[in-house]
């Protein structure tokens, strides 16, 4: 089976006033269909940049990236992925339902199909009663769920998520993590998830990519041995703790040369 997403010796150098910055250096990675991959590392390690490269929001300066066997640009034009940003990014003048319809209007779905999908995804993120509410009427966690619903409504089989729960408190975060795992299992999407929380990465992922800054690169690649069925208390198991330790050691070794 050919990989869903494949990156070969990807480099990305930003030119800044202080000279060139290596955001990504020689990144090689294969992601298979149905994987839940977390990217973890300190800020500046290029995890978000890599996700943006996959989304064709940044162009790499070297190497090749293929999504479904084509370039990120073509993948984007064929709407191969949904993207969830750090902030909800809901348009304040649109109700939640209308926000979710935004991508559907752009693809040009029929009105009927649009409302069907809105109903379906709102149910997935447990926001059925909020279709006609406006973003400011929702809490931060609910807004982020709405933005996930918007990405899901797009119904692409790849979901790119850039620290979607970074700004939320622990309790809401746990809840959303559980929901996200459920979603992943029921929809069998391929998910790339950027985070800087070790428990979040270990709890969610089938594969964990540990990254390090200056230059941004991959320093460890962990295949999770946890079962697919993951209650919240799996985080107290010894297996979970040993994977967390490996991630932590990777992060530490990435810092040690400074």
């Amino acid at each position: 089976m050919s990989p869903k997403i494949s990156a070969k010796s990807v480099d990305l150098t930003f030119s800044t006033n202080d000279g060139p910055v290596d955001a990504l250096k020689d990144v090689n990675l294969d992601i298979n269909e149905g994987d839940f991959v977390s990217f973890i590392g300190p800020s500046g390690c290029g995890k978000t940049t890599f996700l943006r490269v996959l989304a064709d929001l940044e162009r790499p300066t070297g190497g090749t990236v293929e999504i479904n066997g084509v370039s990120p640009k073509i993948a984007r034009e064929s709407r191969a992925y949904g993207y969830v940003f750090q902030a909800p990014g809901l348009y304040p003048w649109r109700s939640i339902g209308k926000n979710i319809k935004l991508p559907l209007e752009i693809i040009g779905l029929s009105k009927h199909e649009q409302s069907e999908r809105v109903k379906r995804v709102l149910k997935l993120v447990d926001l059925q009663d909020f279709e006609n509410k406006f973003p400011w009427q929702l809490s931060g966690g609910m807004q982020q769920r709405a933005s996930i619903a918007r990405a899901l409504a797009f119904d692409a089989d790849i979901l790119l998520m850039d620290e979607p729960f970074g700004a939320l408190d622990e309790i809401v975060r746990d809840h959303l993590n559980e929901q996200l795992l459920d979603l992943w299992k029921t929809t069998s999407k391929t998910i790339c998830f950027v985070t800087h929380s070790i428990p979040e990465a270990v709890y969610l992922s089938t594969k964990i990519v540990v990254m390090s800054p200056r230059p941004g690169r991959i320093i460890d690649f962990i295949e999770s041995t946890l079962p697919n069925e993951r209650p919240l208390d799996i985080r107290d198991s010894s297996e979970f703790i040993s994977i967390s330790q490996r991630v932590r050691e990777g992060l530490r070794s990435g810092h040690s040369y400074e």
Binding site: A55, R76, R79, Y83, F85, G89, I106, I107, F154
Partner: peptide, 8 residues
């Protein structure tokens, strides 16, 4: 960026 990802 959001609209860019939708290829609007």
């Amino acid at each position: 960026d959001l609209l860019h990802t939708y290829n609007a």
